[in-house]
Design a protein around this nucleic acid. Structure first.
Ligand SMILES: Nc1ncnc2c1ncn2[C@@H]1O[C@H](COP(=O)(O)OP(=O)(O)OP(=O)(O)O)[C@@H](O)[C@H]1O
Length: 763
DNA sequence: CCCGCACGCCTTTTT
DNA sequence: GGCGTGCGGG
């Protein structure tokens, strides 16, 4: 999914029949790529392996269409992450002359982002409220628990998580609660149907949709509402979709509905990279494309421009073990390159050491940190790696899009904003009505809830209506009315302001809610961190550019719209969005998040039976093959260096266990690897050349020594919020250590080392 | 009404 | 090993 390389396309003024513009767009493409890019009308499928330029083809084709005179606003391109969308938009903009008419207004979005907007614009037709909230998985669980209670189902027999995933499957298949109930023919299914009914009723009452609803409502709308469908068909004359192998039924329906009028549907993908079947992706969407679109042309791309020979061949061999698959040839344009290093280490600590040592060696050879990534099957594996990277002073970042928004204080703040944007959102309101504590406890809320239910109002409304609070104790009633008055003040500001006031609104809400505390002398380090996070939120909101601001003359929109779009963008961030390619750090992420990316050097850790393939996905051949594809995706992210590691002993969920070799390692032919087995070496040269073999063990016995050395006075460090600074003092404090750091920007701070996640910075 | 602690379950992957 | 839930004390 990486976009075209930095080297500019070659110009060849002698190519006949091409204008200069087209030569610029097409000159550096292969014949097959050029055929795909210059395909104009009708359905087309680009079916090709990793690194063959599929994403590049999409980007170029958009630019090509615009250069032919198709206005950009008639083009819809769908990518897998917001980040990919942003990069594609930038790339297209760079490819087009600044004065080209019709270059503005291109839509590049993820399916979810596109649907969120569509649903807002056509709320009434879709049967949702225009102020709807998007529920994240936490909210979904809260709603499901309520639903189970309402439906009289015991959560210990009907686990909310399992109910939700079954409902999610139904939604991806575009089944409404009614459809689902109609098909439920055994006891279990009928109970799920009951839960689905109750759950959906709760979402509706709260004016909320979950992630699946975004797609389902839009797909249903496009399928059933000729008016809206016609509007979109008219607007989007060309539809392009990246990573088509991982679309689900709802997305399939949407794509077809929009393209039905003109048939200009251009999809690219690789069935061998389909890794989301577990959440409803249907590989048949791409395999049966020609059946769905008679007359479609299929263009294979067979040349890999990303990875060197050993990597491409090893990955090809691995994936050829999948039986349900059409064989596909892939040859690299590059040289043989280095063989893959397949290394077994004694345990996860040795593994981390080995990986980090290897990355440091590459760095010394001139590979920038940002050209390296560490991939793993499960998030839990990141921890040991992080520790080792920090110890060694290697700058790194974890690709977790929602990391910032996962913090409790930020979730609370977001709940405040959400209940402002959507007064019907009782889930958000309940979360914050007594956070921070203001004397509105459980029994009070129960009474208000009863009154709200009886009068058909939302919780927030009921709180402001004294006539409904008769059952509430006088003292509590005062607290409730007081809070309602504060909220009313915020609502006024929200209704009156414009988008320039978003930062101020957030700041005011934090202050008046009491989440933000006045500077106190005896604040704990934790509390200080929370306050810093809240301040960060204010500045993020202040910096936020609402997408619709760019569509207006003045560059501003109403505050209500800006807030909505802010909440929307936060709800829809993906893990890969967190990657900042300009930041010069090693990236850690799951194999799933790595889809579409590429790095000079890749380390894949934890390639053991039970992790890859994962123990929960080993039972069926289908799942095993998806695991193999995941391994394939990981390997093919590497341009030149690929390190694949495993540990012979690993601690999982607190249990130290001997591991079993992954069958995938055996499926990589020996001629493409260099295998090393340090599985029985403890603390000797297994780390790959470092001399202080006993370092780790020493550290475990006495963490103080290693840390004292690593963070002694004078060490340059980086902190996520405070930036860079120099350690002034290092003091053991019982089981932890406190460091005083003089930061360049914010001055002197005292931090708890174990908490602050300081990274050493090298000069 | 708030907070702290113990127990039990578990995450595979994500928009 | 970590998190969420539920219970009990202040
Ligand atoms: N014709 C070409 N000449 C030179 N480099 C190319 C060419 N086509 C693609 N590339 C480069 O190859 C790399 C992979 O391209 P791209 O990301 O578009 O492939 P992809 O098929 O989308 O891969 P994946 O399926 O793995 O996501 C990129 O760095 C791209 O710049």
């Amino acid at each position: 999914m990486t976009i075209v390389g930095c080297s500019g396309p070659e110009r060849d003024p002698y190519t006949a029949g091409m204008s200069l513009d087209h030569d610029f767009l097409l000159g550096d493409l292969t014949d097959a790529q050029r055929e795909a890019v210059t395909h104009v009308d009708g359905a087309a499928l680009v079916l090709a392996g990793p690194g063959s330029g599929k994403t590049r083809v999409i980007t170029r084709r958009i630019a090509y269409l615009v250069s032919l005179g198709v206005p950009a606003w008639q083009i819809l391109a769908v990518t897998f992450t917001n980040k990919a969308a942003g990069e594609m938009r930038d790339r297209v903009e760079h490819l087009l002359p600044v004065d080209l008419p019709g270059r503005r207004g291109l839509t590049v979005a993820t399916f979810h982002g596109f649907c969120a907007r569509l649903l807002r614009d056509h709320a009434a037709a879709a049967g949702v409220s225009p102020d709807y909230s998007i529920y994240d998985s936490g909210d979904q669980r809260t709603a499901m628990k309520q639903a189970l209670e309402r439906a009289g189902l015991d959560p210990s027999n009907w686990p909310p998580q399992s109910m939700l995933s079954q409902i999610s499957q139904a939604k991806n298949a575009l089944q409404s609660p009614d459809d689902f109930r109609a098909e439920a023919d055994d006891f279990h299914a009928r109970m799920v149907a009951k839960a689905y009914d109750a759950y959906q009723a709760i979402l509706e009452r709260n004016h909320a949709v979950d992630f699946d609803d975004l797609l389902r409502h839009c797909a249903t709308l496009l399928r059933n509402d000729g008016q809206v469908r016609g509007e979109l068909q008219n607007r989007f004359r060309y539809v392009l979709i990246d990573e088509y192998q991982d679309t689900n039924h709802a997305q399939f329906v949407m794509a077809n509905a929009i393209a039905a009028a003109h048939g200009n549907l251009f999809v690219v993908g690789d069935p061998d990279q389909s890794i989301y079947a577990w959440r409803g992706a249907d590989i048949r969407n791409i395999l049966d494309f020609e059946e769905h679109h008679p007359g479609a042309i299929t263009i294979p791309l067979g040349r890999n421009f990303r990875s060197t020979g050993h990597i491409v061949q090893a990955a090809s061999s691995l994936i050829s073990n999948n039986r349900r698959r059409k064989a596909k040839e892939l040859t690299t344009e590059l040289e043989e390159g280095a063989p893959i290093r397949v290394v077994r280490l004694a345990d996860e600590h040795q593994e981390a050491r080995h990986v980090v040592d290897r990355l440091k060696a590459l760095s010394e050879d001139g590979v920038p940190w940002r050209g390296m990534a560490i991939l793993y099957r499960v998030n839990a594996l990141s921890r040991v790696l992080e520790d080792q990277l920090r110890r060694e002073g290697v700058p790194y970042a974890i690709a977790r899009g929602t990391a910032f928004y996962d913090r409790k204080e930020i979730k609370d703040a977001m709940a405040y904003l959400r209940m402002l944007a959507n007064p019907a959102d009782d889930v958000a309101f309940r979360r914050i009505v007594n956070t921070p504590a203001r004397g509105i406890g459980g029994s009070t809320i129960k009474r208000v809830e009863a009154a709200a239910a009886a009068s058909g109002r939302s919780l927030a409304e009921a709180c402001g209506d004294e006539s409904l609070l008769g059952e509430v104790a006088t003292r509590s009633r005062k607290a409730v009315l007081g809070f309602a008055a504060i909220v009313a003040g915020w609502r006024q500001e929200l209704a009156a302001g414009d988008s320039t006031g978003l930062g101020d609104l957030v700041s005011r809400v934090l202050r008046e809610s009491g989440l933000e505390r006045p500077e106190g002398a005896f604040e704990s380090e934790d509390e200080r961190q929370r306050q810093a996070n809240l301040a960060e939120l204010v500045s993020a909101a202040g910096d936020f550019v609402a997408p619709s601001m760019e569509e207006t003359e003045t560059g501003t929109v109403t505050l209500a719209i800006a807030l909505r779009e802010y909440l929307e963008s936060v709800a829809l961030v993906s893990d890969a969005d967190a990657i900042d390619s300009g930041s010069g750090v090693v990236t850690l992420m799951t194999l799933h998040a790595a889809k579409g990316l590429e790095y000079h050097a890749i380390a894949m850790v934890g390639v053991e039976d039970g992790l890859l393939p994962h123990s929960r996905a080993r039972d069926s051949e289908l799942e095993l093959e998806e695991e193999r594809r995941l391994c394939f995706v990981g390997m093919t992210r590497a341009e030149r260096e690929l390190l694949v590691t495993s540990a012979s002993i690993r601690t999982i969920r607190g249990m130290r266990q001997a591991t079993i070799r992954s069958q995938f390692l055996e499926e990589i032919p020996d001629e493409h690897c260099e295998r090393h087995d340090f599985g029985d070496s403890w603390g000797d040269d297994a780390g790959g050349g470092s001399e202080d073999g006993g370092y780790r063990v020493e550290l475990e016995d006495d963490p103080g020594d290693g840390l004292a050395d690593a963070f002694k006075a004078g060490t340059m460090v980086r902190h996520a919020q405070f930036g860079t600074g120099v350690v002034a003092t290092f003091t053991p404090r019982g089981r932890v250590h406190s460091v005083v750091v003089d930061f360049k920007v914010v001055g002197r701070k005292t931090l708890v080392l174990e908490y602050a996640k300081l990274q050493r910075v090298q000069f």
